[in-house]
Structures are given as structure tokens and as C-alpha cells.
């Protein structure tokens, strides 16, 4: 005779079970994690490394397609609103069905021959224009743009020997450089030197645009100019010798000099706030010189990838559609 295991009795306070609406809501919002778990289990059961490699992109695509939980909101100042950023699954649904599907359907509808003309075939050209243009455009925008940008940045960071991406291949944002490449202490300076930004540090330090005295300061304040130049040169040699304590000390000194000038300038009644703002922008803090250098190093890649995007999803498909339509016309009229 079996005995009852009393430890298995649930002694928790009674909470009414969730209704089917709550369960369905939860399933809808966590559809992506359900899919993720399903593929992870499949991955474990598969032994072949080739199949595992094939499964990986399918898994990430499926997870992307099934994310419907709105949880990204951005505060906008003009207009004052909290803007909802759709999750990728919802965005793809809206773009593929709402943009591509609806436009193709309208193209199909408009392709109908006028009246009840017998013998005339449906004109598919608008529908095909839409499919060629939007299917490619939306797909490349969602899946291709990030990949292209990542590859470009990765190539540049290897070539120029600096850090622009994290280990997962995600490009650091401008704000991340502001927060993480501000050389506020000797430890941070050493961390950058040791972790792979040595070349960037030396190059930026020797570049007068980033670690120098702006022309308007050099012209106006000759005394200060000499002091600043001395500190800059000491900083450069300290960095070359990996003397981080001295280098940080010089950065502090440079920023103190800069701050005192800016402070005195702000007291000058002839200088408007706008002009002062522009002035401080032209002469930013010396501690931020590496951050600015790294930010500027990613700009060519941003310009290239945006340029590619404009050609590949903007002008390219339009040009292709035009060429194809005109070729078809010539062919149908016996001109080819």
C-alpha cells in the first residue's frame, strides 16, 4: 500500500487561477520566448554541427517575427510625447502586410482591363513593380542594413586598430563613446591603452584638432596659448611613455585652464549665450578628446551605409522598375 507524500501538498495561499484571457495575453506577449525555447530544445537534440548552423539564423528570424511586446518608449521634446517604438515582429507585420500587401492588392485591382473588354489580359505591371520595389526594400531595411553597417565598422576597426564595436559585433553609439571614452582617471586611460585603443589614443593625442589649441584661442590669448601648448606636449610624451598618472594630471591641468577661460568669457557682457555655446563646442573638454576621435572615426562608415541604403532601397528599385517596364513595352511592340 502506497503512502501519501505530505510534503508535496501545496501550502501556498489560494490565488484564483488566471482566466483564459490572461493566459492568452501572456502567450501573445511572450510568443518570442516560447519560440526561442522551442528552437533551443531542438538545437540540443540536433547533433550535426551543420544543421545547428542552419538552425541558428532560422531561430533568430523566428524570434524576431514573433516579438509583439511593446516595451520601448522614447521621450520626445517636440512634440511632447512618449513615442512607442514597435517591436520587430509587430513592425514586420505592419510593413509586410500594411505596406507591401495592400499596395500589391491595389496594383492587382488596378490591373483589371477597362470595362468588360474581351480578350484583354490583366495588367500585372503595377503589382510586379510593388513586389520588386517593396519586398526587396523592406527586407533589406530590416535585415540587411545592420549587417552592412556592422561589416563596414568591423573592417575599419581592424584596419585602424581601435575599438568601435563590442564583442557581439554591435557598434557603439555616440553616447556610449561619450560615457566610456571620457578619460577622467588614470585607470580609465590605462584601460583604453590596454584593451585595444592604444593606437587611437596616440593618434588622437598627436592630432592638433583633438588635442591642441583652437586657432581663435591661440590668436586671442598668447600667454595661455603657450601654457596650453606646454601641457599638451607633456601629455603627448607622457602617453608615449605610458605614464598614465602624469598624462591624467596634464589633462586635468588643461581642463582647468580651459574652464577658467570659458568662465571669464561667460562674464563678458558682449558675449551672448548662443555665441558662448558655440565657443565651448569648438573648444570642448580635453578629457573628451578620445571620445570625439572615436565618434568621428565611425562617421565615414555611417555615411557609406546610409548611402548604400539610399541606392539599394531607394533609387535602385525605381530605376530597375523603369528599365523593365520600358523593355517590356519595346518587346511587346516588336522593337527588341
Amino acid at each position: 500500500m502506497s503512502t501519501i507524500d505530505t510534503t508535496a501538498i501545496n501550502l501556498k495561499p489560494a490565488v484564483s487561477p488566471p482566466s483564459w484571457v490572461t493566459r492568452a495575453s501572456k502567450q501573445y506577449l511572450t510568443f518570442d520566448s516560447t519560440v526561442d525555447k522551442y528552437f533551443s530544445n531542438k538545437e540540443k537534440s540536433i547533433k550535426s554541427p551543420v544543421l545547428k548552423k542552419i538552425l541558428k539564423p532560422i531561430k533568430s528570424l523566428a524570434v524576431m517575427l514573433t516579438s509583439y511586446d511593446f516595451n520601448h518608449f522614447i521621450n520626445s521634446k517636440t512634440p511632447r510625447a512618449r513615442i512607442a517604438e514597435p517591436p520587430l515582429g509587430a513592425l514586420m507585420l505592419m510593413m509586410y502586410i500594411g505596406l507591401l500587401g495592400a499596395r500589391a492588392a491595389r496594383g492587382w485591382q488596378r490591373g483589371k482591363p477597362p470595362g468588360s473588354a474581351q480578350g484583354q489580359k490583366r495588367d500585372y505591371r503595377e503589382m510586379l513593380d510593388v513586389l520588386r520595389r517593396d519586398m526587396w526594400g523592406i527586407t533589406f531595411y530590416i535585415f540587411g542594413f545592420g549587417v552592412v553597417n556592422r561589416l563596414l565598422v568591423n573592417r575599419a576597426q581592424k584596419r585602424k586598430k581601435l575599438i568601435l564595436q563590442n564583442k557581439e559585433g554591435k557598434t557603439y553609439t555616440f553616447t556610449q563613446h561619450d560615457l566610456n571614452a571620457r578619460l577622467s582617471s588614470a585607470q580609465v586611460l590605462q584601460a583604453h591603452y590596454d584593451k585595444g585603443n592604444k593606437q587611437a589614443l596616440l593618434k588622437a593625442a598627436n592630432n592638433n584638432s583633438y588635442m591642441g589649441v583652437p586657432q581663435f584661442i591661440a590668436r586671442r590669448y598668447p600667454e595661455l596659448r603657450k601654457q596650453l601648448a606646454d601641457s599638451v606636449n607633456v601629455f603627448r610624451s607622457a602617453l608615449r611613455n605610458a605614464d598614465f598618472a602624469l598624462a591624467t594630471e596634464q589633462l586635468e591641468k588643461l581642463d582647468t585652464m580651459r574652464d577658467s577661460v570659458v568662465k571669464q568669457m561667460s562674464k563678458n557682457s558682449t558675449l551672448t549665450a548662443k555665441k558662448l555655446g558655440r565657443l565651448t563646442k569648438q573648444w570642448p573638454e580635453y578629457k573628451d578628446f578620445l571620445a570625439r576621435y572615436l565618434q568621428h572615426k565611425r562617421i565615414p562608415m555611417d555615411v557609406t551605409s546610409f548611402g548604400l541604403l539610399f541606392v539599394l532601397i531607394g533609387y535602385g528599385p525605381i530605376w530597375l522598375n523603369r528599365v523593365l517596364t520600358e523593355h517590356q513595352y519595346r518587346k511587346n511592340n516588336g522593337m527588341v
Partner: peptide
């Protein structure tokens, strides 16, 4: 549970209304 239901409802509505609007817009 009630917040969860509201969240799911508004998420479905967001997608649904946007889809309806985009389809009519064409």
C-alpha cells in the same frame, strides 16, 4: 493580470489599427 490583459489588448490594437489604416491609405 489586469495590466497584462490591458497591455496585450493595446498591443493587438496598435498592430490592428495601423494595419487597417495602411490598407485604406493605399
Amino acid at each position: 493580470h489586469r495590466i497584462l490583459r490591458a497591455k496585450a489588448l493595446y498591443s493587438v490594437l496598435s498592430v490592428g489599427i495601423t494595419l487597417a489604416f495602411l490598407s485604406r491609405l493605399v
